[in-house]
Amino acid sequence: MSDGVPILIVDDEPPIRRLLRTSLGPNGFHVIEAENGEIALKLAVHEKPDVMLLDLGLPDMDGGEVIRRLRASGSKLPIIVLSSRGDEKGKVEALDLGADDYVTKPFGMAELIARIRAALRHRVQDDGGTPVFQTGDVSVDLTRRKVTRAGEPVKLSPKEYDILRMLVVHAGKVLTHRMLMQEVWGAAGDVQYLRIYIRQLRQKLEQDPERPEIILTETGVGYRLAD
């Protein structure tokens, strides 16, 4: 068996696959490659990678279809989408289908590796992580529904807590506006309501709400809790 964390790269451009292979290999990853969606779906089952890097523009099917089929099969494989700059709609659709994160081309390798490791940590959390989340001086105890900042209790409204809980459960993962609205309000609605509550949460949790370091904005897409 090959050493390293198995990672499946799905991209029809050989130069991109070569770049990722030569960059990720020395950083502790065993690279598996697929040039289209059908091959990717087969390798996801037979090779059992720990994470997938997925280009949306595949020759045989849209990358979103790969995500849809994997999630329909019950797979929890972390999926990081490689998207072209400006493809905001594609990013949102991929995340709504079940992708964990996205990186915009051209990307820096240090950022990509950080996103991969965050996705792997999130998978561990899904498999039974601690119910207490800590970031900076903010602590969230999901079992006791208790939030503190610098050791002092923070009083949240039910909606504020529901939003924060979603972000904590998926810490490090981008949650789209639609996903948060659907979970907290039960239906997609006016995103402005969500923005108001995010602003209120930042007022209570961030040292500088105008320069947030905990609840991060993914412009045009949604929000991410700093992992």
Score class of each variant (00 low, 15 high):
D12M: 07
E13N: 14
E13C: 02
P14C: 04
P14W: 12
P15S: 13
I16T: 15
R17N: 09
R17W: 13
L19V: 15
R21Q: 12
S23L: 03
G25W: 06
G25A: 15
P26Y: 02
H30R: 15
H30N: 15
V31P: 03
E33C: 09
A34W: 04
A34K: 12
N36D: 14
N36Q: 14
G37Q: 12
G37E: 09
E38F: 10
E38N: 11
I39S: 08
A40Y: 05
A40H: 02
L41I: 09
L41M: 14
L43Q: 13
L43I: 03
A44I: 03
V45F: 01
H46Q: 12
H46P: 00
D50Y: 06
D50V: 05
V51N: 04
V51T: 11
L53V: 13
L53S: 06
L53T: 11
L54N: 05
D55G: 13
D55H: 11
L56A: 03
L56D: 02
G57H: 14
L58A: 08
L58V: 07
L58N: 06
D60L: 07
M61K: 15
M61E: 09
D62L: 03
G64R: 14
E65K: 14
I67D: 01
I67L: 05
R68S: 03
R69I: 00
L70P: 00
L70W: 01
R71H: 08
A72R: 15
A72G: 03
S73A: 15
S73F: 02
G74W: 12
G74K: 11
G74A: 05
